[in-house]
């Protein structure tokens, strides 16, 4: 029997994924709290451990790992950009160890080392974002925001915005397919032509959005939605009431919070997380 799937922001997730046993607010806070780790920690060993931990979470949560493959080009581009930025524009200090000389450009070990530190740090941060997008649905974000007492109108707008991305992608593909049907191969065009063609996409996309705004507004008004600024008025939060915070949620939140506080305190009061402790800095 095929597994029942739920649609997430980046794909599909089995209904029995353990991630669904967590309250959407916990999952939303996961993004906010765990994203802070690579911001604070530069030590590459810890960021590699973080990346491995994230890959394990992908596995445990039954996320199809092919989703990461979609970001292959983003990782490759980032690698080249960082490598080029830090070799050609990395600066030079007489103490640096020059590895290769390419004309006036000196490729130094110190610059490459720093590029590696930054790249590993970013991989961890990007994996956190991919995990979040792969495991959250629009509904989860709205419920998470509502649980955090964000005014309904803001939470609702966030959900509507996420939905409108899907609608815009459908519109975008419809226009693109129409162009293809007229034998236009965008990939084969030079960049300047691509730019011109993009103009043909963006005008109908915006025009459709304006037309849709009428439909959405009419539908909202017809269902008795009153825009009262940030006040929610007499509105019942039925959907939110269907979710309950469990001990697991409190445990996960406490764990993430304690870990965050721990690395903040350690990085402020000790030099345990200093880059000098990295193997890279002992080479």
């Amino acid at each position: 029997m095929p597994t029942k799937m739920r649609r997430s922001l980046l794909g599909y997730l089995p209904v029995d994924s353990p991630i669904f046993s967590l309250h959407p607010m916990t999952r939303l806070l996961f993004l906010l709290i765990v994203s802070a780790y690579p911001m604070i920690v530069r030590l590459p060993e810890l960021n590699v451990a973080g990346s491995i931990f994230m890959l394990a979470l992908f596995k445990v949560s039954k996320v199809d790992l092919r989703v990461i493959k979609n970001y292959k080009m983003a990782f490759v581009n980032l690698f080249f950009v960082i490598a080029i930025a830090y070799t050609f524009f990395g600066g030079y200090n007489p103490d640096y160890r020059v590895l290769i000389k390419l004309g006036p450009v000196k490729v130094c070990w110190e610059n490459l080392r720093w590029a590696t530190v930054v790249y590993i740090q970013l991989i961890f941060a990007i994996l956190i974002m991919i995990f979040f997008l792969s495991t959250m649905r629009e509904r989860d974000i709205v419920v998470g925001l509502r649980a955090l007492r964000v005014p309904f109108v803001l939470a609702y707008m966030a959900g509507l915005a996420l939905r409108s991305i899907g609608l815009s992608i459908i519109d975008f593909n419809t226009i693109r397919e129409a162009e293809k049907a007229r034998a236009l191969d965008l990939q084969a065009l030079p960049f300047s032509e691509k730019v011109k063609k993009f103009g043909m996409y963006i005008v109908p996309l915006v025009a459709l959005a304006i037309r849709r705004s009428d439909e959405v507004s009419n539908a909202l008004d017809s269902r008795g939605f009153r825009f009262t600024g940030l006040r929610s008025g007499r509105r019942t939060d039925y959907i939110l009431s269907k979710y309950r915070m469990t001990r697991l949620d409190y445990a996960v939140l406490a764990g993430m919070g304690v870990f965050l506080a721990g690395i903040v305190l350690i990085s402020v009061y000790t030099d345990w997380l200093a880059l000098e402790n990295s193997l890279l800095y002992r080479i």
């Binding site: 996420l162 008795g224 019942t236």
Partner: peptide, 23 residues
């Protein structure tokens, strides 16, 4: 064009929530 929510359940209860009916 008239869907305002991301699941059938939310869609059906949207107007009822707006009117503040008990759960």
């Amino acid at each position: 064009s008239q869907f305002l929510s991301m699941t059938v359940e939310e869609e059906v209860v949207f107007a009822l929530e707006n009117r503040g009916f008990p759960r």
